[in-house]
Structure formats: structure tokens, C-alpha cells
């Protein structure tokens, strides 16, 4: 019997590696400071992708997403990624 295909939704978070300067995050942090917001130590800006995967198995779908992260969505030279099931 053929397994039924399901739709899985994933969210992928891509952030610049900590050793890479993030000027956008720094500008946002500076704006907080200029507006009297206290206690913010650091701001980093990243990206979120939402992917819908048509697949019959959650683990297979997750592996597919991980592979897309390595191959296209993140550049390992400058970025790291996290995959979340949404």
C-alpha cells in the first residue's frame, strides 16, 4: 500500500556566524541606545525561511531541508542555520 503524502512545514533560521561582523545588528543596537533603551547588550539580524515539504515521513522531510540548508539557504563560510518544525 502506498503511504500517504503529508505536508510538513519547517522554519529555517540563518544567522551570520558570531565571528562575522553584522553591521545591520549594530545599527539597530545603536538606535536602541539613541532612544534610551537600556540593557541591550547586542543585536544580530538574521533570516527566516518557511518551507512546505510534501513527503510521507517527517525524518525524510527534515533531512531534505537540512540538505537544502547546506546546499543553498546558508553559506557555511559566513552563516549557520537551525531547522525548526513549525
Amino acid at each position: 500500500m502506498k503511504e500517504e503524502l503529508k505536508i510538513y512545514t519547517f522554519k529555517v533560521e540563518v544567522m551570520l556566524r558570531t565571528e562575522v561582523l553584522d553591521p545591520q545588528g549594530e545599527t539597530i543596537n545603536q538606535t536602541f541606545k539613541n532612544n534610551g533603551v537600556k540593557n541591550v547588550l547586542n543585536v544580530r539580524q538574521g533570516k527566516i525561511f518557511e518551507l512546505k515539504i510534501n513527503c510521507n515521513n517527517l525524518e525524510v522531510a527534515r533531512k531534505e531541508v537540512e540538505s537544502m540548508c547546506r546546499d543553498i539557504l546558508a553559506n557555511p563560510v559566513i552563516e549557520e542555520y537551525k531547522v525548526f518544525e513549525a
Partner: peptide, 17 residues
Amino acid sequence: LTETNILPGALITNQNQ
């Protein structure tokens, strides 16, 4: 060329944005 890994490293947004 960096995105295809023919050359190493990456090019990112200018420091002054």
C-alpha cells in the same frame, strides 16, 4: 565564484551598509 567554492571565502555587505 565564491558561492560555487571555486574561490574560498565570501563577500558580504559593506561595513558601512
